[in-house]
């Protein structure tokens, strides 16, 4: 199960692909679709492998993406 995910604000993205290139497990890809300004916006191509490390968020020069970790599931009894 994926440990985390990303949130993208497509209207801010300028399609530089820093997030795609520097994601350690390389789970992102630029979508073939365009945003309103004509840039290709990243999407999770391999969501299961996202660790929520937020390195994409640190690299993004336009504050258009960030990663977050899912809360750890509560330990089940028994």
């Amino acid at each position: 199960m994926a440990k985390g995910s990303v949130i993208v604000r497509p209207e801010r993205c300028k399609g530089c692909a820093f997030c795609v290139e520097f994601c350690p497990p390389r789970v992102l890809a630029l979508s073939p679709a365009f945003n309103a300004k004509g840039y290709h916006v990243p999407e999770l191509a391999d969501p299961e492998k996202c660790t929520g490390c937020d390195l994409c968020g640190m690299y993004c020069p336009d504050f258009a993406i960030h990663g977050f970790r899912f809360p750890k599931p509560a330990p089940t009894a028994g």
Binding site: R12, K14, C16, F18, Y39, G57, P61, D62, H66
Partner: peptide, 24 residues
């Protein structure tokens, strides 16, 4: 985004060009 609380969100997107390093 953890950076958001320190940004003037109403001024985004920035004037910086695609792939400019300043925002990073």
């Amino acid at each position: 985004n953890p950076a958001e609380q320190f940004l003037r969100s109403d001024r985004m997107p920035s004037i910086w060009c695609p792939g400019c390093g300043i925002g990073t």
